[in-house]
Design a binder for these strands. Structure first.
Length: 578
RNA sequence: GCGCCCGUAGCUCAGUUGGAUAGAGUGGCUGGCUACGAACCAGCAGGUCGGGAGUUCGAAUCUCUCCGGGCGCGCCA
């Protein structure tokens, strides 16, 4: 396969005088087996610059190709495709490679140690993760695994938004529930967090805190902006009064208790889902290490900021953003945006060449301004790559399930995992492109219907294991030497198809890596499973003929290996039986 | 209004960055276990790739335009 590319490059070099040397040589897998195993469109691409008909170009290319025992025949087809038919020897060799390389089969060093920081989930620590976060986690984790398998050096990171207004609102919510717990009858603000978990946090906090924290202040709700007409001002006033009533120390104590409790829950939830970020990066720590200050200074030094209306603005429009952005508010506090460019600068300073952010699709407007920030600080804008993950829409009983974090009316990742299992959830989440909306039918998933492809793939794996168990029961052993020498006995259609399919794993993995597209792996595994099931139904592995038996079992073993390797990239188990 | 994303079989979606006759699952219909696991397999039916124009040897894929849907456009995070 590489041989062909090499030969084409030689040809291109030979004609360098006549053609544009930059013309890319392309050799790809064919879709239709009648077109051989590999095909190249090189002749058609060169036809114009060479001023010759494509088929004639193809002929002169073929004449110069070196002989190889791996290539059975070469032909010109259609408008000028060069089709290569590989010898079965080529596939036999590859099959042996699958067995030899084992869990490493498919992996490559294409990434060449390129350092990547992949940030994902980064849900505000104001409540449990919901199903949308689950999709982010499954996607991000699979991409990280795929990148690692293809030679990238990857660090995964969860950005903890533990600073700012959201945390204040959470603290207020908990405190109000504490007051309720102490017997107060108070109107709960519409903008506060009303999930059940807030009550649990409240009762925990009540136990660990000074009892005076739950003394009910008479004036708490007097003269507030209306919750109906200005819920934001209403909330901010309440937060201020809470701070005053409690004192900063007690307020922060509640905040910290709630934060730690929620983070612990998120961490456990993700770990059970097979997702373990290497780093949990605290937004507050940016402040501690003066990162925001430093980033702002950098911008100012470059003349990228100006003052207006008492606030400090960043000239984002100079870098392609649609409007300038505030970095320091009139009240002196820095904005979330300021933290974020500081955070991304800090990522670069940690030595990562590529920063991949896995973000919710609703953050797309955000990409341009962070890129602008990076560029203004002297970092290449291409260093930030954003993968947007579209929303998950849940269906229950054929109807859309409405979700809102604040109202507490949402399905948590934990609930989903309990209902459908980790494997089904993880596969389901990466089965379609991240930029595609995902309809998740809870009833269907709950029913453990075999409509879910996870069972189909796992079943193929379990079937191989079952064959091996039966092999042993019948007193046979598998001999790798005999098997390798007998591979030419595999002449059935299903055997050829499966064998060829297995050898596509490395290139599938590579495509998934380049495109950050785990769904390629998922769909590929489905096809492998399908080819195996077809084979299984048509022929038997455990036959009298020892050579044939060994060869067939080898094919089964290779299938199992590829399924395992693929599933592990997706964080899905490969069960021996089910 | 401006910007980004999406539109492929009745439904849910793939389509390896421009390749040859557009593929799966599911639903519908017809068949297959005295078998190494039937959570499986074989077969039938199902399409103006949202509409139109362009680019070229070649378009679901790239460009433009219209239609339809989602999201964003704060001194919120």
């Amino acid at each position: 396969m590489k041989l062909i590319e090499q030969a084409l490059e030689i040809f291109a070099a030979d004609n360098a005088g006549a053609i544009d040397a930059s013309t890319e040589t392309e050799v790809e897998r064919t879709r239709d087996p009648r077109h051989g195993h590999y095909a190249s469109n090189i002749a058609m691409r060169l036809a114009k610059p060479l001023g010759q008909p494509p088929r004639q170009v193809a002929e002169s290319i073929i004449e110069r190709l070196p002989e190889s025992e791996l290539v059975e025949s070469i032909e010109i087809a259609g408008p000028g495709f060069i089709n290569f038919h590989l010898s079965s020897q080529a596939f036999h060799r590859e099959l042996g490679g699958i067995i030899d390389r084992g869990s490493h089969y498919g992996s490559s060093s294409h990434g060449a140690g390129h350092k990547v920081l992949l940030e994902y989930v980064s849900a505000n620590p104001t409540g449990p993760l919901h199903v949308g976060h689950g999709r982010h986690a499954a996607y991000g984790d699979s991409v990280a695994r795929i990148l690692k398998a293809t030679g990238f050096e990857v660090l995964t990171e969860y950005y903890v938004n533990d600073a700012g207004r959201q945390m204040d609102i959470l603290t207020l919510s908990v405190w109000l529930r504490m007051l309720e717990g102490a017997g107060a009858d108070i109107p709960f603000p519409s903008g506060a967090y009303r999930g059940q978990y807030v009550r649990e946090l409240a009762s925990d906090a009540t136990e660990s805190l000074d009892p005076s924290s739950t003394a009910i202040p008479d004036e708490l709700f007097h003269d507030l902006p209306s919750d109906d007409t200005d819920s934001d001002a209403h909330l901010d006033q309440l937060i201020e009064r809470a701070r005053a009533c409690l004192g900063e120390t007690a307020f922060l104590a509640i905040l910290d208790t709630a934060l730690q409790s929620i983070l612990a829950d998120i961490r456990e939830d993700l770990a059970e889902f097979g997702v373990c970020p290497d780093e949990w990066f605290s937004e507050r720590s940016l402040d501690d290490r003066q990162s925001i200050h430093k980033a702002l200074k950098l911008l100012k030094k470059g003349g990228m900021t100006y003052e207006r209306d008492g606030a400090v603005w960043f000239r984002a429009t100079n870098f392609g953003d649609e409007k300038d952005r505030v970095v320091v508010r009139e009240n002196g506090r820095t904005t979330y945006f300021a933290s974020d460019i500081a955070y991304h600068l800090h990522k670069r300073e940690r030595g990562f060449e590529t920063l991949i952010d896995v973000l919710g699709a609703d953050h797309h407007g955000y990409v341009a301004r962070v890129r602008a920030g990076l560029e203004a600080m002297g970092e290449p804008r291409e260093s930030l790559e954003v993968q947007l993950v579209q929303f998950v829409v849940l269906y229950r009983g054929g109807r859309k399930v409405q979700m809102s974090t604040r109202s507490g009316d949402f399905v948590t990742l934990r609930q989903l995992r309990d209902e459908v299992g980790n494997d089904a959830a993880r596969l389901f989440f990466v089965l379609r492109s991240n930029e595609q909306h995902l309809d998740f039918d809870l009833d269907l998933a709950k029913a453990r219907s075999n409509e879910n492809p996870v069972y189909y793939i796992q079943y193929a794996h379990a079937r191989v294991c079952s064959v091996l168990r039966e092999l042993e029961v019948r007193g046979y052993t598998w001999d790798s030497g005999v098997a390798q020498d007998s591979l030419d006995r595999l002449t059935e259609d299903q055997e050829r198809t499966l064998m060829q399919q297995l050898t596509r794993f490395p290139e599938t993995l590579d495509a998934a890596s380049r495109q950050r597209a785990p769904q390629h792996v998922a769909h590929y595994l489905r096809e492998v499973a399908q080819n195996f099931h077809m084979y299984y139904n048509a022929h038997r592995f455990i036959v009298e003929d020892g050579d044939l038996r060994n060869a067939r079992v080898m094919l089964a073993l290779a299938t199992r290996q590829v399924l395992r390797n693929g599933l592990s990239l997706l964080g899905v188990d490969a069960p021996e039986s089910m």
